[in-house]
Design a protein around this nucleic acid. Structure first.
Lengths: 202, 202
DNA sequence: TTTTTAATTAAATGGTCGTTTAACAAAAGA
DNA sequence: TCTTTTGTTAAACGACCATTTAATTAAAAA
């Protein structure tokens, strides 16, 4: 099993979805993008369903990797910076090309009626929420942290959703400005300082 | 042409999408939900595409009607109340059942690759934005109004999107609380008063 | 080099798709 | 009532679908 084939087919799947839509992304079209025979999809993924699930997994993994990378190089005690890192990871330029955004939306819609994709989507959604809540709890009361986390998550997904239908795609800078602005108006005036002093006191 | 058929088929389409997804919503399945023959779809809508477009148009029309109704019975000079009316219309209980939300999302995803649906979606999106901007301009500077309008629109769509994958569906009360909270933190402290006094002075 | 295994494909299969055609039923008009 | 129009359907059509089979090519092992 050449290690090249799987990523190659996943990329071809995204191209097919980008240009024809999930509806018309048949194994014939996908394999044509990959320059291989249709039968090979069954050989590597056990069927079209397996390929689609792998493709969605790939999109979600890349996204959460972008978040993880940014969190890793952010001061563990700078709450505001950490939330901005989470947001920034969700608007990482590598993830914002049309191919990825359209695939993401197509799968979100598909997940409603596909248990495998549904579970994937849900796990990811919960992880985003809990990352946000974890940081927010250091500067807000727990229930308030939950509330704001939901607001930020809705903003992220809403901007992605609208970006999928905007000719120019997602405006990463504007997106982060909207969310940062939301965040700053939710935090107490000196939240950054308080978070730091809490740490030094413990 | 019995006037009953068209709405009947549109409703059947939403039922099919709700329970099987747009992918598997074939004319056979849709017509079975409507209790008629598959051929009748071509007779009334000229083809499956016509039915899908009519269904999307129906969903979007119902939504903007809900907004219009609420705006009509709101004081034209109470900016905050008017924005809340727009938001409330987008979370009207009549529009929030699974059938409608799933159909909405399926079409949003579909619109990316279907010029007819794309145009529909885009017109609606712009109308929401301009309704919001119009009101916000009375209490905020124009560019700030545009900024906040985008934030509110993203929150609305993001909450719908996330609601489509939440087992319990959209929590209308929480949704409106999140957006109202956002709005109030964006407005100057006495925005309501200022808007009113502007009117009485003109 | 020969043999064996792995990767790939062309072709065939059964199924479902959306649409069309031609026949049938029901209602409306004469 | 008889005729004509309208609404509806069953059946057939060709196209495309995902998947399987058996044959072919390429790589690895002997």
């Amino acid at each position: 099993m050449p290690a090249i084939r799987k990523p190659q087919l996943i990329k071809a799947t995204m191209q097919a979805i980008d240009s024809a839509g999930l509806q018309k992304a048949s194994v014939a079209i996908i394999s044509r993008y990959a320059g291989v025979s249709p039968a090979i999809i069954n050989h590597y993924f056990g069927g079209k369903d397996g390929l689609l699930e792998a493709t969605m997994r790939s999109v979600l993994r890349d996204l959460s990797n972008a978040v993880r990378e940014r969190l890793a190089e952010t001061d563990p005690n700078d709450v505001i910076a950490r939330i901005k890192a989470i947001v920034g990871g969700n608007f990482d330029s590598r993830q914002l090309d049309s191919k990825v955004v359209k695939t993401w939306l197509a799968f979100w819609s598909q997940a409603m009626h596909h248990p495998g994709l549904f579970r994937l989507q849900r796990v990811n959604e919960q992880r985003l929420l809990s990352h946000l809540r974890l940081e927010l709890k250091r500067v807000l009361e727990p229930e308030r942290a939950q509330f704001v986390a939901q607001g930020i998550a809705a903003l992220i997904d809403g901007i992605w959703l609208r970006g999928a239908l905007t000719p120019g795609g997602i405006n990463s800078e504007l997106a982060q400005r909207i969310i940062t602005d939301y965040l700053e108006r939710q935090l107490p005036p000196n939240a950054a300082l308080r978070a730091l002093s809490t740490r030094t006191a413990s």
